[in-house]
Write a protein that binds this DNA or RNA. Structure first.
Length: 640
RNA sequence: GCCCCUGUGGCGGAAUUGGUAGACGCGCGGGAUUCAAAAUCCCGUUCCUUCUGGGAGUGUCGGUUCGAUUCCGACCGGGGGCACCA
């Protein structure tokens, strides 16, 4: 996640310096992250959109044609991928900064981007694949300058693959023998000292075009006046509100169609003028809504002191699809608001939990239309058809549920059939929330059965419950104590599961708890232990099946709400057992299990393990070399 | 091409982060109850096997370790992101 954002920002450090063009005396600024490879430079390349290329193209039809060609291939991204490296020699040359006698030819090249760096590069074919491809194609020199460890300078050659790994500089004058990082620093220092270049940080962050031609967005508070041009709306007239009587019948922007909304007067000269009908991207709002959320009553956008108290958000839960844009922009906004002193917080979100996406098979009928899964029926021969039109249906890729592809399931159907509690329980039970999930209703029966089962446990308890609020007796029968332990272990486990967002594990634990409640109870404390267990069950189930929990809570005699009751607290003493089961391994294979007192010493545990008949039969005739005892876990006996 | 995530029974998925692999659920098989069915309950269910037992097994191959689903290396498959960024 962080990494994706880092890639998106694309910070790089390097050297920016000017070449001097021999023929014209002009400066040609270039940017590089590998100043250490300067001695391996064999040509310069500029973008087809570079001013120098444009100027030359004015009286060079051939170059003009080449520039046009580059622009065309540049638009289709797929073509780019396989496009060959192409260039056009401008006839110009530049002087090498370290050696006046070296003149490098200047090409216009299709792989150089105008909007990154300076739109011009120097190329070191030995250290960059693109440069190498180009050099091979136009038969330009390739001088290796980085020697990988273990290679011999006399024999190391660059074939069709550039060497980009670590190594030692050579063929590089004063840089010879340095490693890459030191060489980079040396060149930059020298460039700055001699005044022909400077250290530069570059980002490849993309522009964010914030205007949208749509209704749902914040109006952009500007007015277009024939005389004054674009004029900002006066601050006392803010905010501009969207009209509510818009129609969406016509294609295009409803604001532009609206008969009156855009008509206004110029804030500067008072003449008739028109409002800007584009609105802002909704990312604009989603980048700081959490601040407004803390202070909904503030007259200003938000009250910084309140925001500082509540934020940052401890746990943000969202889908991966917002990994970069929304979450990154929100960080930028927060950073900016922090810089201008509106808030003290530096980051908006402390923790992020990315939910998986819900996927479903897509269906298309013979008219090439997407089909809702609920309309798809299976024929006897296994073929698919639409229940409404009868057209043949083909199953396509499994994809993220989306309205446009109609591979969505309406939860209302399963809510109608099983109720909201069961539906919710089922969704939580199946898959950990961070994983992508392929939607299926297989298994919902189990959720329904559980729902019914716990209802019965409460309405027909196997022993008479003690009255509400009665004290737990000091002495308990074995079965009552066992149930109490189950209750408290479950409380402890579920609390941790929910904290960690492992809802599916919490569900599994509740299934086990229900099984523990079903066992026969007798003797002292049975009624009390059962009441405790059932109340615990209700409270633990409450976040996942709230309606059912309230009903059961009433059956247990309460007139309050289970959701308002405090979360149960585990008694630590009841969550630990006096004995512990341990596996006994001989040469790494489980041969027996033993049950020993929890606090038994390693020596005693070893003795018990060695005393096992099964173990003896496996070590018979062998010499015991080593015994490893991990208390509470395993005993491993190594023998041969 | 580069980066990230992921791979465990017929299926969804557990495994206290190096310590009994397969919890729990689904499905399937068997049984109880019933005139019968529904519902419910119990038992079994990784694979192989010469079956009171033994062997193999967490994508594949190797390594570290007394011990590896877990750590390391290479490869294969699936998903996602970036993509001529100098």
């Amino acid at each position: 996640m962080r990494l994706m954002q880092e890639n998106w920002i694309g910070r790089s450090e390097g050297l920016k310096f000017d070449f001097t063009i021999v023929e014209t005396g002009e400066k040609l600024p270039v940017y590089t992250t590998r100043p250490d490879t300067l001695f391996g430079a064999s040509f310069c390349a500029i973008s087809a959109d570079h001013p120098i290329a444009a100027k030359l193209a004015e009286d060079n039809a051939e170059l003009e044609a080449f520039v046009q060609e580059c622009r065309q291939t540049g638009t289709t991204e797929e073509a780019l991928e396989k496009a060959d490296k192409n260039g056009y020699h401008t006839g110009l040359h530049v002087t090498h900064p370290f050696d006046d006698s070296i003149k490098l030819p200047v090409y216009v090249a299709n792989f150089v981007l105008m909007d990154y760096g300076t739109g011009a590069i120097f190329a070191c074919p030995a250290g960059d694949q693109r440069d190498l491809d180009f050099a091979r194609k136009y038969d330009l020199p390739v001088l290796p300058i980085v020697l990988p460890e273990g290679e011999d300078a006399a024999s190391f050659e660059i074939g069709t693959e550039a060497y980009t790994g670590p190594g030692t500089l050579y063929n590089s004058g004063f840089l010879d023998g340095l490693d890459i990082d030191t060489a980079k620093a040396t060149v930059i220092d020298r460039a700055e000292a001699e005044g022909w270049g400077e250290r530069m940080v570059n980002y490849r962050l993309r522009d964010w075009g914030v205007s949208r031609q749509r209704y749902w967005g914040t109006p952009i508070p500007f007015v277009h006046c024939d005389d004054c041009g674009v004029v900002p709306v006066k601050s006392e007239d803010l905010p501009i509100k969207l009209p509510e009587d818009v129609s969406f019948d016509k294609p295009g922007n409803p604001l532009a169609h609206h008969p009156t909304w855009k008509k206004t007067s110029c804030p500067a000269c008072g003449k008739d003028a028109e409002r800007e009908t584009d609105t802002m991207d909704t990312f604009m709002d989603s980048s700081w809504y959490f601040m407004r959320f803390c202070t909904p009553d503030a007259d200003e956008p938000f009250d910084g002191s309140v925001v500082d108290e509540w934020l940052p958000v401890n746990q943000y839960i969202g889908g991966v699809e917002h990994a970069i844009l929304h979450l990154l922009y929100a960080r930028f906004f927060t950073r900016a608001l922090n810089h201008i002193g509106r808030t003290k917080i530096k980051e908006p979100f402390e923790g992020l939990f990315t939910q998986g996406m819900v996927n479903h098979v897509t269906y298309k009928d013979s008219n090439d239309e997407w089909v809702f899964p609920e309309l798809v029926r299976t024929k006897e021969d296994g073929g698919l058809y639409r229940s409404d039109t009868g057209l043949v249906v083909k199953a396509g890729r499994i994809e993220k549920m989306s309205k446009s592809k109609r591979n969505v399931i309406d939860p209302d159907d399963i809510i109608d059939q099983y109720g909201a509690d069961t539906a919710r329980w089922f969704v939580l039970s199946d898959s950990p929330p961070d994983r992508d999930l392929q939607w299926t209703e297989a298994g919902i029966e189990g959720a329904w059965r559980f729902n019914q089962r716990i209802c019965r446990l409460v309405s027909e308890p196997s022993v008479a419950l003690s009255p509400m609020g009665s004290d737990m007796p000091t002495s308990l029968s074995d079965s009552a104590l066992a149930l109490r332990k189950a209750s408290h272990k479950t409380i402890k486990g579920i609390t941790a599961d929910i904290e960690g967002l492992h809802f599916n594990k919490a569900v599994a634990r509740l299934y086990e708890f229900a099984a523990a409640i079903s066992v026969k109870l007798e003797g002292a404390g049975a009624g009390e232990a059962m009441r405790e267990a059932l109340e615990t069950l209700v409270l633990l189930v409450c976040p996942m099946m709230p309606h059912l929990a309230e009903e059961m809570w009433q059956q247990l005699g309460y007139e309050t709400l289970a959701s308002n009751a405090p979360w149960p607290k585990a008694e630590e003493a009841l969550t630990v057992d006096a004995t512990v089961k341990m596996a006994v391994l001989v040469n790494g294979k489980v041969r027996d299990t033993i049950e020993v007192a929890k606090d038994m010493s390693k020596e005693d545990v070893e003795a018990v393990a060695m005393g096992s008949e099964k173990v003896q039969s496996f070590i018979e005739g062998k010499t015991v070399r080593k015994v490893i005892v991990v208390l509470g876990r395993i005993v491993n006996i190594v023998a041969n």
